[in-house]
Structure formats: structure tokens, C-alpha cells
Amino acid sequence: MNTAILISELTFKAIRSSGPGGQHVNKTASKVEVAFHLESSDALSENEKERLLHKLSNKISSEGILVLQCGETRSQHRNKTIVIERLIALLHQNLKVVKPRKKTKPSKGAIERRLKSKKEHAFKKSNRKPPKIE
């Protein structure tokens, strides 16, 4: 994934924010929405595109566009940097290949320790009961 090319492919849109700022919110468009067309991107290989389309299928629109937005701060520039960082982090996170789990067995010593502690616990519980009178 080439981050420089990816950033140049992003399209930004400024929207009126509903966040903090008082009357300032009603006058300025400080919320930033970023759109990234995944299928036509040159920054990603075909393999990476397939992986992202599969993993982010619930976040990608039917046209193949991934949309994120940020309206946390009063500054449009800060919101823009935050949303770019979020997008890159989201892509990096979903491009990671998860290693398959290797099945392992517990060692003999671990099995014996577990059984020993179970017997001790059971003995402790049985000692708390009142004695049986015949």
C-alpha cells in the first residue's frame, strides 16, 4: 500500500458539524467527510483490494466507496488530518494477514497440576460440610 498515492486519491467534502463550537457551528463547515474509491485505486494491489473488499464489506457502499467523517474539533484542518489518519489505520488494520492458530496439547505436567489443584479444591469444600451422623 502506497500512502502518498492513496492520500492523493482521496476526495474531501466539508459539512456543517453538530459538535462543539456554539454559534460557530452554524456558520462554518468544520466536519470533514473523506471518500475513497477502493476499486479504482492505484495505491493498492489487486490482492489488497480483494482483501479490503471482503473485510470491509459492511463499510463500503454499493459503488465501492469507503466513506469516513470526523467532526470532533472546531478546526476543519485538524478534522481532515484526523480522518486521514483513521482511514490509513483502518486500511492497515484490515490488510494484516492473520496467522492460523496451531493446535497444541497441554503438557503432562500442566495436566497433573490442574488435576491436583482440582482435588485440593474438592477436599477443601468437602471439609466445610458438617459430618454425617449415623
Rank of each mutant, 00 (worst) to 15 (best):
I60L: 04
R128V: 04
N58K: 15
I7C: 13
S45N: 03
G71P: 06
K27E: 05
H121N: 08
K129P: 02
L91Q: 14
E120F: 04
V32Y: 13
V25C: 15
N2F: 00
A4K: 10
I111K: 14
K129A: 08
K129W: 01
N47H: 09
L10W: 01
G22T: 02
V34P: 03
S41W: 01
K27P: 05
K119H: 08
S126C: 02
N127K: 12
F12H: 03
E72W: 06
I65R: 05
E9Q: 06
I7K: 15
R114M: 05
G19I: 00
I111N: 08
T3S: 11
N127V: 09
N2I: 00
R51Q: 15
R86P: 09
V34D: 00
H77I: 10
K108C: 09
T28G: 14
K13V: 04
G21D: 04
G19E: 00
S61M: 13
S117H: 08
T104P: 10
V32S: 14
K13P: 02
S75A: 02
I111L: 12
G71H: 04
P106Q: 06
L68G: 13
P106I: 11
K119V: 07
V32W: 13
E9C: 01
I82Y: 01
R101E: 05
G64I: 07
K59V: 01
